[in-house]
Design a protein around this nucleic acid. Structure first.
Lengths: 332, 332
DNA sequence: CTGAAAGCGCTTACAG
DNA sequence: CTGAAAGCGCTTACAG
């Protein structure tokens, strides 16, 4: 069962491939209605599906965009991926995705793969020291937009971010206003700009209120397990605190788990704030108070930006910042 | 900045494209070491990245597999997608994904897209009445494996499933053994085989224990919102029940939310069981008792199966069934 | 051991 | 209004 090609429908209708190609691509301003209709009709009848690989080879455009993200299983990223796919689909693109696990080597491999697949552009959520990998893209003329996480040296490239620092400051202010003076901070992993930004927000706010104490800062990573581990560590560290600001919602989930288990009442004994506002955060009990990033919007916007770049539209803003917003729920 | 091609490195080394192609593809048994090394070296030096689009056009293989799933944002599906991507990557394939939203029209569109992109195969999580769409694949000679959800008429095609009926029966047995006699069942949406299978499990078990009552069955869908809505409905229906079996974990989350809000104690006032065992289910409080599907394994296995089919390996089993397992935690 | 040539299915000037 | 031809970058018999 051979696939039907443009050639088949050309010979079927008695015209040339060129003509068929033109009408199929709507570049048919100068083709007679009669031929056009004949072609369209037989294309339909033969269930013709264009071979877009062949098309890509001659146009040098694949119509696909790549997403590189740490782990699709993390709700924050899957929500972004969803937004991107919606946006891409909307504009006639499709999407390839890769899980980097924050591993630079994997990133590199995937980037090479995507170059080789001729992706038209990439949406990149960095796993850390990704600068070299991005240089590779630049060298190959593949546009990319960074989302959520800066990459050292690319602060001025295309990107859509959230004002992380400001977001954390809002959260700390809220805790402070509630009378909290010993606010522990669970920071993200080293090497991620996002971690740094959020930590900076914490530091600035804490200093501003005169409650800064470096012993209140604990390092972790952006996973549930990380949240559990750091919380256990905090508890055993001997440092006193009356509230915890987790650098991400899923860390907060892990942390709350530990606290609840040990019999702490949230928010009575201890207040909790997260960061992200992933969908599930309003479904746990107590509902998580968190600094919301407009996740879907960020994903969607990044996709729009990328496609605009690909299609050579005029770009009014290379850097897009969204405002975070404190969502007050049950944990603080 | 022109991309470097096989031609460039051919003229650079003074051999033909054919020779270059052969050594780059390790079909170089009959190429002298000298030439081979020269070619490899200059390829490296020139940062050559093969154009796999061109390659695909001549080999008629794209090296990509497609995933069609309802919504990547649903943890069950993102965990499957992750497993698939890992497996694919492992075997040198990459992955395109599409969110169907259980919408047959979208599915159709995406399938056409994937055919046109020459995907080597598809992993398909059906949104319902997908039979026509699958016929399209068959007609185009594209292998596919179904995961999690049967499609009418394809029960004997390639697929990896979980014994849904049996899983529910285990759960009902557990509740029964705990003394529950009025077990409400929140079923999934019509038109999904998975819903039907799980409902059948409920019916069989309930009848077996002589506690069947059709008034205890409530229809919903596999979302958090669905779980909330159906639970509110149950509560207002006047029907009495001492426990609820939700057809999926995220439904259970939504349901628990409503119950907790109304002041019910779980599991004291009412017991809850979910289905799936998505990762988050052990992080909510109380931890969800649920019937576990081996999600990662199912995804991974489906990918292995598909690639085996693609590569013409011998397939010992077209249908793969995993055993569900009741995970007893805090809600029942 | 290596090269010339055809072909994959399309698009795109160009010519008529 | 339509067709012939070249080209996209690779692979793969085939010939030598």
């Amino acid at each position: 069962m051979k696939k039907v090609t443009i050639m088949d429908i050309a010979s079927m209708t008695g015209v040339s491939k060129a003509t068929v190609s033109m009408v199929l691509n709507k570049k048919d301003s100068c083709i007679s209605d009669a031929t056009r209709n004949r072609i369209l009709k037989t294309a339909r009848e033969m269930h013709y599906i264009p071979n877009s690989i062949a098309r890509s080879l001659s146009t040098n455009k694949s119509g696909t965009i790549g997403i590189i993200l740490p782990d699709i299983t993390n709700p924050f990223f899957s929500e972004i991926a969803r937004a991107i796919e919606d946006g891409a689909n909307n504009r006639g693109y499709n999407v390839m995705f890769c899980n980097s696990d924050n591993n630079i080597k994997k990133e590199e491999k995937y980037i090479e793969l995507m170059i080789s697949k001729l992706v038209d552009g990439i949406i990149f959520i960095s796993g850390g020291e990704s600068r070299k990998n991005l240089e590779r893209l630049t060298a190959n003329n593949i546009p990319f937009v960074l989302v959520d996480r800066y990459v050292d040296g690319y602060e001025n490239g295309y990107g859509v971010y959230c004002h992380n620092e400001e977001g954390v400051m809002q959260g700390i202010k809220y805790l402070y206003d509630k009378g909290k003076r010993k606010i522990a901070f669970a920071k993200g992993p080293k090497g991620l700009e996002t971690s740094k930004n959020r930590l900076n927000g914490y530091k600035r706010a804490a200093r501003q209120y005169g409650i800064y104490d470096s012993k209140l800062i604990f390092e972790s990573d952006f996973t549930i397990e990380g949240g559990k581990a750091v919380t256990e560590y905090m508890l055993s560290s001997g440092t006193e605190f009356d509230s915890i600001f987790y650098s991400s919602d899923i860390m907060a989930f892990g942390g709350m788990k530990v606290l609840l288990r040990k019999g702490y009442k949230i928010p009575d004994d201890i207040s909790i704030i997260g960061f992200d506002n992933i969908r599930i955060s309003e479904f746990i009990e107590p509902e998580l108070t968190t600094v919301a990033q407009p996740i879907y919007k960020m994903g969607n916007r990044s996709c729009e930006l990328l496609i605009d770049i690909i299609e050579g539209a005029e770009i009014s803003q290379k850097l897009i910042f969204f405002k975070p917003e404190l969502i007050i729920r049950g944990t603080a």
